[in-house]
C-alpha cells in the first residue's frame, strides 16, 4: 500500500506492507535512523517522535495510521544550520547522555513536555519520562538538563 506524510517539513511517500510500523518506515523507508528501537513492548521510548505535535512512540502505530500526518523526528529538531535546540543544547551542557541510544527519545519527550509545561517541577519531569528508559545516566543529568532548558535553577542537592 502507499502512504504519504510530511516528515521534518518534507513531503514523503512510500510503498509499504500494511504491517509496517511507523518506526520501521522512518528507519528503513526514509533512512532516518536517529529514531531508535530499544524494545518490542512499547516500554523504552527510544523511538519517541512527534505526530501532529503529540508525543508518540513510533513502535505503537502503523505507518499507515500516520497517513497525512506531520511527523517530527530527532533529525528535525535542530535548526537547518545545525544549531541545536534549547533542549538538545542543555543535554550537552549538563551531560544528559552517555551512549546516546535513548537520547533521541528523551529529547523528543522533553521537548514535548516543555511545550505543554514550560516550567515543570522535578517530580513532573520524572513523571513525564516514565515511558523513556535510560540505562547509562541514572537520569540525574537528564533531569538537570530539562530543568535548565526550562530556565530553572537546579535544586541544591543536584549541584554537587
Amino acid at each position: 500500500m502507499k502512504v504519504s506524510m510530511e516528515v521534518n517539513g518534507r513531503a514523503v511517500s512510500g510503498d509499504i506492507e500494511g504491517r509496517t510500523l511507523l518506526v520501521d518506515f522512518l528507519r528503513e523507508g526514509l533512512h532516518l535512523t536517529g529514531t531508535h528501537v530499544g524494545c518490542d513492548t512499547s516500554q523504552c521510548g527510544a523511538c519517541t517522535v512527534h505526530v501532529d505535535g503529540a508525543q508518540v512512540k513510533a513502535c505503537t502505530i502503523f505507518a499507515a495510521e500516520a497517513e497525512g500526518a506531520k511527523i517530527t523526528t530527532i533529525e528535525g529538531v535542530a535548526a537547518p544550520d545545525g544549531t541545536l535546540s534549547t533542549v538538545q543544547q542543555a543535554f550537552q551542557d549538563y551531560h544528559g547522555l552517555q551512549c546516546g541510544f535513548c537520547t533521541p527519545g528523551m529529547v523528543m519527550a522533553a521537548t514535548s513536555l516543555l511545550k505543554d509545561n514550560p516550567k515543570p517541577t522535578e517530580a513532573e519531569i520524572r513523571h513525564h519520562l516514565d515511558g523513556n528508559i535510560c540505562r547509562c545516566t541514572g537520569y540525574h543529568n537528564i533531569i538537570k538538563a530539562i530543568m535548565a532548558a526550562s530556565g530553572q535553577e537546579m535544586p541544591a542537592l543536584a549541584a554537587e
Partner: peptide, 18 residues
C-alpha cells in the same frame, strides 16, 4: 563538553543497526 554528543543529539550517530 562531550563532542560526541552532537551526533547523538541530532540523530546522526552510526549504530550497527543503522
Amino acid at each position: 563538553k562531550r563532542r560526541e554528543d552532537v551526533r547523538f543529539l541530532t540523530g546522526t550517530g552510526n549504530y550497527t543497526d543503522d
